[in-house]
Amino acid sequence: MHPIARAIFTAGLTLAAYGQSTAPNPGGSGTLTAPVSPQRHWADAREYELGRRATEQPDPDERIRALLQWEAAYPTSEFERERAVALVGAYQAASRTVEAFARAVQAFQLHPKELAESILVAELAPRLALPSPSQVEVVKTAARNILDLAPETARQQSAQAAAIGARDISATNDPEAQRVVAMIRAWRRGKPTRTTAEIEREIRQVAEAALDWAKGNSK
C-alpha cells in the first residue's frame, strides 16, 4: 500500500491515539470510556469495541470478518473511510485481489476527489488478471485525479514536514502530540529531506504507471 494511502489507515484506526469521550455501555449499567477523535464520534461503546477488535486482528481473514461485522452493524459509521481502507488492506494481505480492488473502487466512488482512495485504485489495478472495460475506465479516472491533486498535495506535505521540524514540542502540554512529533523526528533523523518537486514526482509516477497499464488493457 502506498505511504499516503497507508497514512489514512494508520492515523484513522490507531484508536488509542484518540482523545477520551464517554459512550453508553449497551451491555450493562454505567458508561464505558471510548476513545474518539475531536471531530468524529463512535455511535456507542459497542461500535468502539467492534472497531477496536477489527484493527487488532493479526490474521487477515479474521480481520476481514471483523471489519465486515462492524460494517454490517454500523453501515453509516463516522469512521467509514478508515474502515473502507482497512478492508482494502485486509483483502490485499489475504491475497484476495479481486475483492481488494472492488473495495478500493467502492472507497474511491465515495470519495472521488481524495488522493488516498485514488492511489489505492491505481496501485491495485496491475494485479488484476483479466480487467473488465469498466475497471480500466475507473483506473483512468483515478489516475487523472492523482495528477490533478499532485501539485497541491506535494506542497502541503512539504509544508507539514517543515512545520514538524520547526515546532517546539516542549511548548505544548499535550503528551500525545509531543510523543508523535518526537517519533517523526527520530524516524526522519539521518534521512534526506525531500523537496516539493520530488514529492510531486513520486505521486505523479503512480498515476503515470496506472495510465500505462490502462492503455495496455484497453479493448
Rank of each mutant, 00 (worst) to 15 (best):
V139T: 13
L110G: 08
E208H: 04
R46L: 07
G51C: 03
P133C: 03
R83E: 00
V138G: 00
V121R: 08
A177D: 07
A93I: 05
A154E: 00
T195E: 02
E200L: 06
R65E: 13
A102P: 02
I184W: 14
S77A: 13
Y74K: 01
A102I: 07
F108E: 03
Q205D: 08
I4R: 12
A129V: 11
G51V: 01
P3I: 07
E123F: 14
E78Q: 10
V85L: 06
A143S: 08
E137I: 01
Q106Y: 05
A66H: 11
P38G: 09
Y18P: 15
T172S: 13
I199C: 07
N145W: 00
A7D: 13
A5Y: 09
S29G: 06
P26H: 09
F9R: 01
Q57Y: 12
L147M: 07
L115T: 13
R53M: 09
M1P: 00
A214F: 10
R52F: 12
G51H: 00
A186N: 10
R188E: 14
E49M: 04
A16S: 09
V121H: 14
A45G: 15
A73V: 00
L87S: 01
P26S: 03
K113R: 04
A43R: 06
S21M: 13
P131L: 05
P35I: 05
E80I: 14
R127D: 13
P60G: 11
E152V: 03
S37T: 09
A7G: 14
R46E: 14
L120W: 15
F101E: 10
H2T: 15
F79W: 14
A66Y: 02
P75T: 03
A125L: 06
T55K: 00
P38Y: 15
A73H: 12
A90L: 10
A45I: 04
A209W: 00
S170C: 02
G12V: 11
A182Q: 09
V180D: 00
R96G: 03
D168C: 06
G165W: 12
S77W: 00
A171G: 08
P133G: 10
Q20M: 11
E202F: 11
E99A: 14
A207K: 04
E176L: 07
I169M: 01
S29V: 05
A5R: 02
N145A: 02
D168L: 00
G19K: 12
S29A: 11
P24Q: 05
R46Y: 10
L149W: 02
V139N: 10
A143R: 01
T22K: 08
D148Y: 05
D61F: 15
P26W: 09
P24D: 12
T97C: 07
L128Q: 07
A116K: 06
T97M: 13
N25H: 05
I4V: 14
S134C: 10
P60K: 08
P26M: 03
G28N: 02
V85S: 11
V206T: 13
A5I: 03
A122T: 15
V105L: 08
Y18S: 04
L87W: 05
H41L: 02
